[in-house]
Simulated scan of single mutants.
Amino acid sequence: MPKLTDTQTIVLSRAATRPGNLAMPLPEGLHGAAAQKAVTAMITRGWLEEVEANLRRGEPMWRETGDGHGTTLVVTEAGLQAIGIEPVVASTMTNLRNAKLELVTGPKDAPEASPSPATPKPVAIRAGTKQAEIIGLIQRPEGASIAEIVEATGWLAHSARGLISGGLKKKLNLPITSEKVKGRGTVYKIEAA
């Protein structure tokens, strides 16, 4: 793990818990030249990324671009890994953010549409949780059966199925498929995008 300053740790950790992994607003007291220096260093290392701010949704701006638009800062997969969030969880969070961005903004060549108020906010997935562990299991190429998930988590089978159906498919909108495999039962997988 790279050596982080206290400021970098605070910015990345707070962003990991926010919807869409937004790094804004920066910690209190970090502004002006100090903020510019810290953010530039994190962008250079690939830990932060500057993206167009969705002002309609109230995303805080990092800077104005001069054409009536602004940018905000989000933590990248590398930034999440720098603070110890597992690579599987980090890539899932990055994929979710990108999917939500495309869902809200639409394809690049499509006319701009107003975001739907029913669009769910992205949810941060904390490392070391049972949810993160299950996501890691079903992201494997061979997927995971309920029996394997139960063994890894210590949960009952109905709890594991409930998390997959309600938490991962519906709430996080992950592209999970299931199929019956002889000798393993129902196997769940997250389809690669």
Results as ranks from 00 to 15, higher is better:
A118E: 12
T92D: 08
T17P: 00
Q81I: 09
E133L: 15
A78T: 05
Q36Y: 13
N95F: 11
A41G: 04
P19S: 12
K108R: 15
G183S: 12
W62C: 08
R140M: 06
E28G: 08
G166M: 07
V11Q: 01
I83R: 06
A35F: 01
G58D: 06
P117C: 11
L4M: 03
V187Q: 08
E59F: 09
P117H: 12
S91Y: 08
G79H: 06
L30I: 09
P111L: 15
S114E: 14
A90Q: 05
R18E: 00
S116C: 11
V150K: 13
A16V: 03
L4S: 03
E77I: 02
M61R: 14
N95W: 09
V75E: 04
S91V: 13
A132W: 07
R140N: 08
L22P: 03
E191A: 10
L172R: 13
P122I: 07
T186A: 08
V187H: 04
L30W: 13
S116P: 07
I10A: 02
G106H: 14
K100V: 07
D6N: 00
W62I: 09
P122N: 06
R161P: 02
P25Q: 05
T40F: 02
P60M: 07
G166F: 05
L163C: 12
G106K: 15
V11L: 01
V74F: 08
Y188I: 02
Q8P: 01
G32K: 12
Q36M: 07
T9W: 00
I43H: 06
R161S: 12
T153R: 10
L156S: 13
V88E: 11
I176W: 09
G154A: 11
P27S: 02
E179M: 08
E59M: 13
K180Q: 11
G66N: 14
I149N: 08
I149P: 07
T5V: 06
Q81K: 12
G46D: 10
I149A: 11
A152Q: 14
A99G: 05
T76C: 10
H69V: 05
R63V: 10
R140V: 07
S145G: 03
I83L: 01
V39E: 04
L163A: 12
G106T: 13
T72E: 11
K100C: 13
Q81L: 01
T94I: 10
K170A: 15
Q139H: 14
T76E: 08
I43R: 10
Y188N: 04
R63P: 00
R161L: 02
A41D: 12
R97T: 13
R18W: 02
E191H: 01
A160L: 07
K108V: 15
P111V: 15
G166H: 10
A41Q: 02
L55C: 05
R18C: 00
A132R: 09
A110K: 14
A160N: 04
T153D: 06
L103A: 15
N173K: 15
K121Q: 10
T72D: 12
T94R: 15
A53I: 08
L80A: 00
H158N: 11
E112C: 04
T65P: 10
S145V: 04
M61A: 13
G58A: 01
G128I: 07
G46Q: 02
A34F: 04
Q131H: 14
L80R: 01
Q36H: 15
K108F: 15
A124D: 04
G162M: 08
R126W: 11
E49M: 08
Q139Y: 10
M93K: 05
W155C: 08
S165N: 05
R18N: 02
L12E: 00
A53E: 01
T92H: 15
R14H: 05
L22K: 06
